[in-house]
């Protein structure tokens, strides 16, 4: 099979970009979308043209590195999978496929289809962690965790931080990502000590990065390769509201015993 690609080409952040058409060489329908780009790039390189820059790493749907908005939908036509697991058999011979980068102000473009998603790392650094004491390993299952909480926490922890939620949202909101990170720690006993500090810090960092806010359209959960539910956004909203109602902790005065 052969397809026509309309790919966003942009040399760097400060150069203007445009959609450019490329005719693919003969493809196997069992190639992944990224393998198809590899073949097209080899072809371009042989012709002395600059290959198309795109993000990829594990190619088995768990690292969250691949991106791409394919025909207007992040990660391509299917539900619950990333671009790396989208195969050419999902397209027809002779199809025209529009490939664009994730678009959001907090995801500045680096080159062609590659955007800088470090904003997500900064949100994680702001509060996406728990405190663990060093020392001997604690007994397994020493802390009881309700099964339903463990399941929900696992659902949230599936988030691979790819940024498709931001790319799909009409407001470029990162709330699905942030809520998944807030929830997966907030649901576990080990995440309780920092629970309210965490949600405040992460939401404030999300705002500082310049992401939009949630209009509850549901586009994010529809495109999420890990099918994270917007129920987690409600959970984050609830935790943030409680954090605001609790207020900042009382100032600690110095002195006293010890």
């Amino acid at each position: 099979m052969k397809v026509t690609l309309k790919v966003w080409r942009q040399k760097d952040r400060n150069s203007p970009g445009e959609l450019k058409s490329y005719q693919s060489p003969e493809l196997s329908p069992n190639m992944s979308f990224l393998e198809m780009l590899d073949v097209v790039n080899e072809h371009l390189a042989n012709q002395g043209e600059d290959p198309i820059a795109f993000d990829h790493d594990c190619r088995e749907g768990i690292c969250g590195t691949c991106s791409l908005v394919i025909d207007g939908k992040p990660h391509g036509p299917h539900k619950g999978i990333a671009t790396c697991q989208t195969y050419m058999r999902s397209f027809k011979d002779g199809d025209e496929i529009v490939v664009e980068p994730f678009r959001a102000k907090p995801f500045p473009l680096i080159k062609d289809l590659v955007v800088d998603r470090k904003a997500f790392d900064r949100i994680q650094h702001a509060g996406g962690f728990i405190s663990v004491r060093t020392g001997a390993a604690p007994d397994a299952n020493a802390i009881p965790v309700p099964k339903e909480n463990a399941d929900l926490a696992m659902d949230a922890a599936q988030c691979i931080g790819c940024g498709a939620c931001v790319a799909a949202c009409k407001n470029a909101s990162a709330m699905l990502f942030v809520s998944a990170k807030v929830s997966h720690l907030g649901l576990m006993p080990q995440g309780q000590p920092e629970r309210y500090r965490r949600v405040k810090a992460m939401v404030n960092q999300m705002d500082a990065e310049g992401f939009g806010s949630c209009t509850v359209t549901g586009s994010c959960e529809a495109v999420c390769p890990k099918e994270i539910s917007i129920d987690f956004i409600a959970r984050m909203n609830r935790d943030y509201l409680v954090a605001i109602l609790k207020g900042d902790p009382k100032a600690v005065r110095g002195g006293g015993a010890g």
Partner: peptide
């Protein structure tokens, strides 16, 4: 205004946002 500012550059492929009413 904040939501508009969060996406200064629009997508070229014109499709309705997925699953949004």
């Amino acid at each position: 205004a904040e939501n508009k500012a969060a996406r200064p550059e629009q997508y070229q492929a014109k499709v309705a946002p997925k699953d949004a009413s």
